[in-house]
């Protein structure tokens, strides 16, 4: 077994084995372990950091968007409430105005009505009076034509009045 032989006997190749191992391994350690590895690790670290930063930025942007949406929602709520209030105010004002106008018109109409009623009443009274005199004349005429008797106007008037008013 050559592996064991080099340890026991005074072997020629143990020294070369150890020498070349140390040379090669030292070379690997210096060039690859100390030279290349830290650069590769730095690349990986930089990438990890970039990813973490990007994620944090995305999170912050997300939060900002959420805040923006919240304020937008609040604003839109507030403006909607204001609009509703304005509408309600306008409605109330319109209703009050209409009421006021209606009341005014109502009063005017009432005045007109009472005036008309009094007019009608006076007209009626005068009409009644006219009817009485006309009826009395007609009645005295009729009496004169039928019986030839002359009826005094005052009598005819009293008779007509009695008939008309029961």
């Amino acid at each position: 077994m050559p592996q064991i032989a080099q340890l026991t006997a005074d072997n020629w190749y143990l020294a070369s084995q150890l020498f070349w191992l140390l040379v090669v391994f030292a070379g690997i350690y210096v060039v690859i372990g100390r030279g290349m590895l830290p650069k590769i690790e730095a690349t990986v670290d930089a990438r990890d950091r970039k990813v973490a930063d990007d994620l944090a930025a995305a999170k912050a942007a997300h939060a900002a968007a959420d805040g923006l949406e919240e304020t937008y929602r609040q604003q839109s709520d507030a403006s909607r409430a204001a609009a509703q209030k304005a509408v309600a105010d306008a409605k109330g004002k319109a209703a009050r105005d209409a009421e006021k106008r209606l009341a005014k018109v109502d009063a005017e109409l009432g005045d007109k009505l009472t005036a008309a009623e009094t007019e009608i009443a006076t007209a009626r009274k005068s009409a009644m009076a006219e009817i009485e005199s006309v009826a009395a004349e007609a009645a005295s005429d009729l009496v004169a034509k039928l019986s030839g008797a002359k009826v005094v106007a005052a009598d005819a008037k009293a008779a007509v009045k009695a008939v008309l008013h029961g």
Partner: peptide, 9 residues
């Protein structure tokens, strides 16, 4: 010690 370049090296 004599150091040689071997197949191992």
């Amino acid at each position: 010690h004599e150091v040689l370049f071997t197949n191992s090296a």
